[in-house]
Design a protein around this nucleic acid. Structure first.
Lengths: 248, 248
DNA sequence: TAGTGGTCTAGACCACACT
DNA sequence: GTGTGGTCTAGACCACTAT
């Protein structure tokens, strides 16, 4: 723990970079209330002079706070503490997490090639001759079925779906493997639905029971839909948790 | 529009900063497929040489791509195109947007002070003598009630709730005005619930009708709960839309 | 040992906001 | 005009990776 000659002060300080320490100090002051939303920060130059670091290094530190949404900067005026935005929320979509964090298993129900029609056909392809792969799986917790997932993706010659993908891959991963285009966007729609007779039977519920429906559409960078997934979850087992954007 | 002597080439290029143009060019190459996930980028030095800009400027550009999740950098090895993460989704929680984007109105139903008890009491305060303000509002679309919102926040002396806040402020904003601590975090839980008799009556539905329930808890930086909100939405009117993190 | 990204400097000029 | 943040340079040394 001693400094010693092999470890000069200079080096010790560099274990944590100067720009990071600056950002951390200011973050502390904001979270402790010493700096309140709307308050102005010292100028970049004076922040650097106070710590003996150059302005570029100060800016590197401030850019961290900017990314995190802790401050805003206005050219010609200065940097100011911003009010945290609590209306932008992040969902980490890992199905295991959403199922109350408990263990779960998959069981493959069905894989078949269907015609492009109905709602899914509308999304996936205007060409009516387009063939679509449909994959149905059931999610189990302690051998109890808790949700049904249907995935739809265009049938592409020479891009077979490997068995282990069918069993284990999450949807964006499966699409990345099966498609020629790179998937770059995922749009989700979360709503309440009533179980169809078939779904109810597979879940061991009564038809018309309420359930959460999560529909997900994967797009390429050109805006082409590469796949659709529909997850129908038992109301008592499927929750979605979201939290406001980092503000770390 | 001519360059003229007042507008040398140098200045014209600076309209869009060099670091931004670098980032944009690389982004194009990734989205067009010229650069695929896993591919390595040229070194920072060579990127700079090719464009006649310094390495620090190159790094500023790459940091944009890093933020956006388009690339990853590994010290000592290089920068690499990353596979976009489609499992992190963002919800912009603006109630108007969630209600199918249509116009809506609020109607205040009730404001009262209640004792801290039950689920809300558990969250808001261990002190049983703590008083809690309860605010109930109904959301209307075209004069049709579509959702009920209940807000709970600790009663704090000398921090009155102004009438216009009751009517119009969103929840984080209301808490920021009424609380001494700065709200920094919002945890949401989205689930399916059945309408109580009272809720059904207020929404003009049958009791036990399925609905979407969005519970939101606002926290301070010390982890203290500053408020709880429960939004119960009619299944046909309340959707949540989420999209994968920018990847702009 | 050579190559890479990570950190940092001490300047410079610019555009913008105030007064 | 003065002060601020935005952009940019031409170096430097470091730590890490690979060979």
């Amino acid at each position: 723990m001693q400094k010693g000659k092999g470890m000069p002060m200079r080096a010790r300080e560099q274990v944590i970079p100067a720009y990071y320490r600056l950002a951390d100090d200011i973050k502390q002051k904001i979270e402790s209330g010493e700096l309140k939303p709307g308050d102005g920060l010292p100028t970049e130059e004076s922040l650097g002079e106070a710590r003996g670091i150059s302005r570029m290094t100060v800016r590197q530190g401030l850019s961290l706070l900017l990314e995190a949404g802790l401050i805003e900067t206005i050219k010609g005026k200065g940097s100011f503490v911003s009010r945290p935005c609590l209306n932008r929320l992040v969902i980490d979509w890992e199905i295991g997490v959403q199922l109350n964090g408990q263990e779960y298993q998959y069981r493959l129900l069905e894989v078949k090639v269907v015609r492009s029609e109905g709602e899914i056909g509308q999304i996936l392809g205007p060409a009516p001759e387009q063939k679509i792969i449909q994959i149905k799986r059931v999610l189990l917790q302690q051998d109890q079925p808790v949700a049904i997932e249907e995935r739809y993706l265009p049938y592409i010659k020479g891009k077979p779906l490997l068995e282990n993908h069918l069993e284990y891959a999450d949807f964006p991963e499966m699409i990345a493997k099966h498609q020629e285009c790179l998937p770059v966007r995922n749009d989700m729609d979360i709503s309440v639905a009533l179980l169809t007779a078939e779904q109810a039977q597979q879940l061991g519920e009564l038809p018309q029971s309420p359930a959460m429906l999560v529909r997900s559409i994967i797009y390429s960078s050109t805006g082409k839909a590469l796949g659709v997934s529909r997850l129908v979850g038992h109301q008592n087992h499927l929750h979605l948790r979201a939290t406001s954007y980092p503000y770390r």
